[in-house]
Design a protein around this nucleic acid. Sequence first.
DNA 1: GCGGCGACCTTACCTATGTTAATGTCGGAC
DNA 2: GTCCGACATTAACATAGGTAAGGTCGCCGC
Lengths: 247, 247
Amino acid sequence: MRRPLIRKLEKFTRLSQADKEMLVRIAAQRVRRFAAREDIIHEGEKPEFINLINEGWACRYKTLEDGRRQIIAFFLPGDLCDLNVFILKEMDHSIGAITPVAVSEISRAAFDEMMIGHPRITQALWWESLVAAAIQREWTVNLGQRDALERMAHLLCELFIRLEAAGCTSDSSCEFPLTQTELGETLGMSTVHVNRTLQELRASNLIVLKDRTLTIPNLQALQDVALFNPNYLHLDREGRHLDANEE
Amino acid sequence: MRRPLIRKLEKFTRLSQADKEMLVRIAAQRVRRFAAREDIIHEGEKPEFINLINEGWACRYKTLEDGRRQIIAFFLPGDLCDLNVFILKEMDHSIGAITPVAVSEISRAAFDEMMIGHPRITQALWWESLVAAAIQREWTVNLGQRDALERMAHLLCELFIRLEAAGCTSDSSCEFPLTQTELGETLGMSTVHVNRTLQELRASNLIVLKDRTLTIPNLQALQDVALFNPNYLHLDREGRHLDANEE
DNA sequence: GCGGCGACCTTACCTATGTTAATGTCGGAC
DNA sequence: GTCCGACATTAACATAGGTAAGGTCGCCGC
């Protein structure tokens, strides 16, 4: 069985056996499953748990009064929703499943226990939440400055690299469940233009996207058209070059 | 002397006298001043402190290789830069002064001391960082879904309400130091279009903007054109209706 | 087997916003 | 007092991307 959270956190720091057991235990209790398109939590509800995505893809989204919808973030396997959300009185956005998902609910008590007894996990979770914030900032840059082609390319690079960190890719391919409508809601463009843009990336041999599978034959080339700089993902562990025996 | 941080945190919770003294003490040590346009910290540097803006406006920004610049967030008096940034190896963006600013540097040690001895402050700082994340999400929605007029109106509403929470407004006016170029870099539009959009808001009597002063004669009306919903700022304190004696 | 539906693709046309460039205004340096 | 730079404004024109409409295909329920 894959443990995407552990795999991801180890990009940041080494975890002890006890740390890993703790994380497995946390992820095992209170697992809920949702069908594709189902809401995990809805705007206005009181948040009671930290959600951890174990399997599948989910997203944050927000809907304006007049129906326009914006996808604000994607949650991939191993992603945590919001450390400490329970401080807030109510959700200001919704979280919905994109594919069928398995989610672990982490209670306030379990979270506090972890923070006290496992300083390395605490550090690693801080890191993961700082990275999540950095991703959100990069999306701001993406929407504000890049044109449609760059924007799409950037999103694909990011998702691919994040999936890789969670151990959800093989070679240069990954599952890719997003519809063109969802891509449009993410990138702030119409489905028509999403289609045009994907065609353009295909025509340049930058991507192969078919049957919910994405292949990126030359990631560097795609990064180049996206003006993609992976530094915001903070995946380079302190002293990583010393750990030749990994990956 | 104003204490915008204390004022803001009290929107979330009541602080004890000891809490307030702690915050004053923290804000007093290691104060640095920067001129307008100067960088407080630059992309690539190692973050060593949490920065607290005491006076003036600053911003996060990021520059693409080809020179395009996106302003990612504004820091107003009382805003903290990033809890726990020192976990990261290097900054993935820069923070620059917009006006002359006074910044308090909070060391890792001072931060830890506060976390241990002052649980209410800890809670309040968590709240402030969750709100900062919510603001970043709302900017994603803003750039993705709203058109130029809505986008500008939304930004103005947000800034005004945040300044109000920090005690930096009087009646329906506030200082407003942003140039049209900066507004463009924030909202992902050209300066020409920023100008057109401001003219339109002025013509509808939604704003008065002159000599670096912004007046919003009817905030509700501006919120209506922006499709602005203040819930993401989480300014309504638990049981606020019980505290009739405030504000 | 048929009707319906959702994902996807396509075309033709239209508009919000960008680009370029000229002009205006104001405050500071000398 | 004049020169200069920063900022604001305006106009004329260009284009990226939106809208509307329709078509194809595969899948599911009955």
